[in-house]
Amino acid sequence: MYENYRGLRRCIVTLHAVRRRALFAFALVAAVLSCNVVSHAAVDVGTGIRYVVSTGTLADCSTKAQTALNTYLQTSSETETGSGEWVAYGPNGSRGPSTTVAATVHCYPLTSGYVVTFDCIVELPNNPYNASDLCLDIAHTFSGKPVTPLASPTPPPSGCSTSNLVGTWTSDDRGGPTLTITPDGNLTDGDGVSGNWVLFNSNVTLTYYGNHSLTLAPDGKHMSGGGYHFTRKC
């Protein structure tokens, strides 16, 4: 009888261990899959523009190439001295883990003049402009044609807009949290506890220690409901 009890207990314990491991594995797989959905940016390529210049030297081409690249990226360099192949990287001017933009200008000498080509590589959606726009501007800067300014990153919304909750919200209640709310739908309090927000018309849903329904005031500066009262700094 005692042996049967011990056997049964061992079996239950083993079953629990297996369930725990299965739970861990499931969580791991779920997390990896969910992260892969939003994972990698795509490589966008701009190419096809070339100029055949009947007068001028390779040195002329190199000077223009360097200037054109430095107008949009930084610290352009020649792959080998005198090669006429110029490269530049962005956004910080260096080739490394943070690189999201790269461009190259090839100068090749002809008996009379030179031929020059332009290639641009841009990670999307990590940049506000695409590779074709970048290459067109580099080529036009090279040739002295008018350029269209490249798109700039959209600045984060500011002020007390009624179309979003972005900003810093201080609780009107003594000892209440201060929430930093960002455009990506996230919020964080002073202790690093994070949550989410949704705004539909003036109806606010905060997921922060549970779901809370609040109402955004017409001034965009106050929201309250469910026992919470917040004022936005703006």
Binding site: L23, A27, L28, C35, V43, V87, P97, T99, H106, E123
Partner: peptide, 29 residues
């Protein structure tokens, strides 16, 4: 205990995947 284990493994996985998901762009001639 199970909930904590689940949450910990989820966080650990997200941290691991996030760490390698920032792809660096490289270009050479």
């Amino acid at each position: 205990y199970r909930v904590t284990l689940f949450a910990l493994s989820l966080l650990a996985s997200i941290a691991l995947v996030s760490a390698r998901s920032s792809a660096a762009l490289d270009m050479v001639v």
